[in-house]
Nucleic acid binder design. Sequence first.
DNA 1: TTGATAACCGTAGGGATCCTACGTATATTA
DNA 2: TAATATACGTAGGATCCCTACGGTTATCAA
Lengths: 198, 198
Amino acid sequence: MQHGPAAKPARRPRADGERNRARLVTAAKRAMTELGATVSLEQVAREAGVSIATLYRHFPTRETLIEAVYRQETDSLVDAAAQLTEEREPIAALREWLLLFVDFLDTKQGLSEVLGTLIGGPDGLYSDSSVRLASAVDALVSRATETGPLRADIEPLDLLRALGGVANVSPDKNWKRSAIRMVDLLLKGLQDDADIQT
Amino acid sequence: MQHGPAAKPARRPRADGERNRARLVTAAKRAMTELGATVSLEQVAREAGVSIATLYRHFPTRETLIEAVYRQETDSLVDAAAQLTEEREPIAALREWLLLFVDFLDTKQGLSEVLGTLIGGPDGLYSDSSVRLASAVDALVSRATETGPLRADIEPLDLLRALGGVANVSPDKNWKRSAIRMVDLLLKGLQDDADIQT
DNA sequence: TTGATAACCGTAGGGATCCTACGTATATTA
DNA sequence: TAATATACGTAGGATCCCTACGGTTATCAA
């Protein structure tokens, strides 16, 4: 409720703080892709050479840490969606973007917890990456359903969730083929070339 | 490696043991559907009015407990698969069974950990329910692809995984509509009415 | 019926993790 | 260089996982 002299001039953030933050993200990325997103936060702090309290100060919850770890990649996905929208036809754009999403899942080895954070449903909107990812796929799908012959009664996020389910298997398995086939299967299912019997 | 006088006569299991086992399963079922499959095992034991050691004696791992909890329902699913195979046409049988599977997920509120145990991939075959569920859906799909016009290049379990992904959202959401639409979308994608461009 | 014994049970505890409180140290600004 | 906002680490309570160990009870044989 402060209504004083506007906002403070805002001191420059301390260098050690930002350095430790970066170290934490790096360590968490390595640990999560190796051991899964349920890795002990204390272990992440240890590998970053930082105390556990510092980790909690920078990332109050596990979700905020996960989001920071995958922030760059989700940014790439969002950017790619915009670019594909400009350069490709609606359906092709959607298809290629879904394949990019599969690639993204591939580097994560299909970590279900990551998915839960990123596309875990409408309640998961607390996450910033979540909303941006959702609006990106929303735009792609709605464009495809407007101009192209696609059904419109599918929740766009469900496409991502379905792919996430396929990816949610044990590591070092070649699930990627399955995921790619699933992309085409979903797209083919979306083609509204005839009316669907309920 | 015992090659002695064959097998022991096998004393009848103690009544208190079986009673406690049943109590544990009941408590676990309630706790898991309410709080998720990651619920504390100590809490399950408390709610069952039993010590934690007793829980571990009956169920050495969390997976064995989960399997016991959902044993009955997976049995029902397997039985239904056999029955639908007899009474329905291939594709209709597959579709109805998938809808039953959606119902099954619905009662679990889409617990991702449960799915991980039941359809968590080829490495998850240590679970008994897993193999039986997998062979059931395998049979349904292969029958549909043999007699009906369905593509055969989809791993049957991936259908379940896709549905599981859709179900993997936060509780008390009406995701069931999405899941049902996903069933039809998958089936429509499977219809091999034309060749697919790679 | 009664004793023997296999099977079951709970208490106790080490190790690990989550998360917070609190006093100290350091980088930035004046 | 002095002042202070900011960040840091140690310490610790609470919880959970899982195992070891000795007491207790239900089953079976005599």
